[in-house]
Design a protein around this nucleic acid. Structure first.
Ligand code: ZN
Length: 299
DNA sequence: CGAATTTGACCCGCGC
DNA sequence: GCGCGGGTCAAATTCG
């Protein structure tokens, strides 16, 4: 996520402008002679800055986890909503017209954040009305999800909040990457399956195909507390490694309709901005990321 | 030690 | 029937 991504609709203080000591610290450097007191002062300031960096990085990590879980929840909710909508239309349809078999609903959902680095996704669209009438198969709710991820290795994992058990992996004909088959861990009471395969054209996109509908609750962790004040969780972890956030830009321009993405962003943002704690925390997170960036490119 | 993953075998539909 | 390609099973293996 880059700052313009959120900065459009969220009223955040993106500019950190923290530590006015920086000017004083810069003034110590004019003239190529730095005396001992200046060194001491610089050392002390550096210590403070490092401590602040750790604190903010830690906070940034927590907020990123929060955002990830939020996106998972959003995705699960959206998928559930799609299921309800399709079921509803199916009921109406079966009462009115039995003959017209509805083509299975390809609901293309967007996911925003997964796996350490958060990125956007794009919906490929084959919204063809090919009302195929195979067997009386109206129950298979197939939904396709395109996940933008940067893990170029063979992890092939899509964190959507549910727990899956892998039961197969095959190489397919026209794709160098294998396809993984998963079942819901609540098998066989929950018949949901999903297939995950890296996209053939862009290897940084995972294509997850969900099939079925969960009949149990979302086992997502509800214990991460959203209402905590952003200044309260300052548990300074000395071993906290700074979050290595890979900064990158969305370059899938031609097949990523930015309008839909903006719409989703606005939808999520409007539901988020009602919580002032969250906005403040997000601002802090962005500041932390900004700090991290500058520190990385400085070292 | 039980659960989850791996991975080759197996199955099944489809075109020839 | 045969081969092929996608999907699943299950024994072996690894993992927590
Ligand atoms: Zn399930």
């Amino acid at each position: 996520m880059d700052s313009t991504w959120v900065g459009t609709s969220l009223d955040l203080n993106v500019n950190p402008l923290w530590h006015k000591e920086e000017v004083g610290l810069k003034r110590e450097f004019d003239g190529d002679y730095v005396d001992f007191e200046g060194k001491l002062l610089i050392k002390r300031e550096t210590g403070n800055l490092v401590e602040e960096l750790h604190r903010i990085s830690n906070e940034n990590k927590k907020l990123t986890e929060m955002l990830t879980t939020l996106c998972e929840n959003y995705n699960a909710l959206h998928s559930h909503y799609m299921d309800l909508v399709s079921k509803n239309s199916e009921n109406e349809l079966s009462q009115s017209k039995k003959r017209k078999t509805e083509c299975e609903e390809y609901s293309n959902i967007m996911i925003n954040s997964l796996n350490g680095n958060t990125e956007s996704s794009s919906t490929d669209e084959d919204h063809h009305q090919s009302c195929q009438r195979p067997k009386d198969n109206v129950k298979t709710h197939v939904s396709r999800i395109y996940v933008r991820t940067e893990s170029a290795d063979k992890s092939l994992i899509v964190k959507d909040g549910y727990q899956w058990r892998k039961y197969g992996q095959k190489v397919t004909r026209d794709n160098p990457s294998p396809r993984a088959y998963f079942k819901c861990s609540f098998a066989p009471s929950c018949p949901v399956k999903k297939k995950v395969q890296r996209s053939a054209e862009d290897p940084s996109i995972l294509v997850a195909t969900y099939e079925g509908e969960h009949n149990h609750m979302h086992p997502s962790r509800p214990e991460l507390l959203l209402g905590s004040s952003p200044t309260s969780n300052l548990t300074s972890d000395p071993t906290a490694a700074p979050m290595r956030s890979t900064v990158k830009s969305v370059q899938k321009s031609e097949e990523a309709p930015a309008a839909i993405q903006q719409l989703l962003v606005q939808k999520m943002a409007s539901s988020l901005t009602r919580d002032p704690n969250f906005t403040a925390a997000l601002a802090a997170a962005i500041s932390g990321r900004y700090l991290d960036q500058t520190r990385i490119e400085k070292c």
